[in-house]
Computed example of a mutant assay.
Amino acid sequence: MTTASALTIAAGRAEHLRNVIRGFDAQTVPPVEMIVAVMQDAPYDDLPRTRFPVHQIMVPPRDGQLPLAAARNAAAAAASGDVLVFVDVDCIPGPGLIADYVAAARPGQGLMMGEVLYLPDGALRDGIDAGRFDGMGVRHSDRQAPPPEGLRACEDYRCFWSLNFALHRADWDRSGGFDEGYLGYGGEDTDFGRGLSERGMPIWWMRGGRVYHQYHPHCMPPIHQIPSVIRNADYFASKWGHRTMEHWLHAFRLMGLIENGAQGLRILRQPDDADFALCRQEPHMPYANTRRVLDRLQGIAGPERHDPARIREVERQQADMLARRAG
């Protein structure tokens, strides 16, 4: 019988974590355990009772930054299941998540990314109800829809997102795990996807494996994380020859927050209230969206958003952030 371990990483967000645990306890096929990699000074208390053990392992911050990559690696190392199911702490698993992933995962299958529906503000006032969430949750406009059934190959490693994914333990071992040189926000997911691509390991979009993203105010692009985004973009370049997160960097540049010169990326000023007002997720928005901000900064509206020539020009401008500007 194939077993699965549920894995998450967490710092703060105690009620989010409790909801994740409740979601795993409501599975049609429960995990054999849940591993919580805790990125804060003390473990969580008052966690819900479950049909399976919940283990907390401590992965303290490094240099004042959350060690997201190291925490995922530590959670995987502590797990005993055949299939490793990673869900972010702000995502409630649907009742069939474990069953869906266990049915699809096998050695050599590669990595599978399940469905994500974003919940509006107030969705949890009446508790956790997957049927109700299915009716009110929305898909992210910049993410591909799942296939009609089964799996569909993801042809671009940059689409990998650690929000909700699973793979067999044998494939995790082959992947080498997340690069722990990334600290704080940004870059480690793209690096992991690039590593899978280099190893010839497939990434799949999956029908099922659904989670519900719990509403919480957020900024996109992440103007509250500019120093770590810059650091991690340059770290990515030290490995692969070019930066990543160029859409965020491009937005920062358009806002006058950074510049890209011969000496590399440089912060020009700190974000102000107007910047946060532009990037902040408001209560009527189920998710924050960098594309919305870029469109506003560049004066793109209506049908122009889908004009191929305009899309190519935006991509060209973003690509300028992949390397230092000459001279």
Rank of each mutant, 00 (worst) to 15 (best):
F133W: 07
F165N: 06
H55R: 15
V89F: 07
F86W: 03
V85Y: 05
A75N: 08
G135T: 11
L163K: 08
F165S: 09
Y118L: 03
A99Y: 03
A105K: 00
A74I: 13
R158F: 00
G137K: 00
A166Q: 02
A74V: 11
D90L: 03
V87F: 04
L111D: 01
S162P: 11
A104E: 14
P61H: 02
G131V: 02
R62H: 12
G114A: 11
F86M: 13
L119S: 03
A71H: 01
H55V: 15
I98E: 02
R62K: 13
S162L: 10
P53Y: 01
A77K: 15
P93I: 00
L117G: 15
A77I: 02
A145N: 12
W172C: 13
D90P: 13
E155K: 13
A103C: 11
A78N: 09
L119D: 00
L124K: 08
A69L: 12
A123P: 10
E115S: 12
R62C: 05
A105P: 07
A153F: 09
L151N: 04
W161C: 13
R158W: 06
V102F: 06
W172E: 10
D156N: 15
F133Q: 08
I92C: 03
L163V: 14
A79I: 01
F160I: 03
P120S: 03
Q144V: 11
F160G: 02
W172I: 12
A123M: 09
W161H: 13
V83S: 06
D100C: 10
V59W: 02
P147M: 14
L119C: 00
Q144I: 08
L66N: 07
P67N: 09
G137I: 00
V87P: 07
G122R: 01
L66R: 07
D100H: 12
Q109N: 08
D82H: 11
R72K: 11
V59I: 14
R62A: 11
M113K: 12
G64Q: 09
S80I: 11
